[in-house]
Amino acid sequence: MLNFQTIMLFVGFLMIIAGCYCMIRTYHMLKIIIGIEVAMKAVTMFLILAGYMNGHMGLAQAYVITAIVIEVIVAVVFAGVTIGLYKKYGNMDIRNLTELKG
């Protein structure tokens, strides 16, 4: 039961938990990007592991490169929206956002 694939899956799963914990429990808006990035690294590792397991490494690399491009653009858009909110409120605290009621 304990082989190489299982260990990599388990470490990746721990990284995704860490990333989601960061996204949910932080009070600083820019820390959310760090959570997204950590989770995307785990997904990159899963994609390359899948390519290693079934032998099609070229296809897996194509997937990873596309995912990296999308990840960069999401980080840019998030930073833009965050800086817009900083200009409105004066600090980066996410507890300020109370205008919309749940």
Binding site: I36, A50, N54, Y63, V81, T82, L85, I94, L97
Partner: peptide, 30 residues
């Protein structure tokens, strides 16, 4: 801006779940 941030965080979690599911399917089929 506030609506956009709330939508962005939750939508990114969804995208990460979908990509994880894709990689697990890809582990079995080529």
């Amino acid at each position: 801006l506030e609506g956009s941030i709330k939508y962005l965080i939750i939508s990114e979690i969804a995208s990460i779940f979908i990509l994880m599911g894709l990689s697990f399917i890809s582990m079995k089929t080529g």
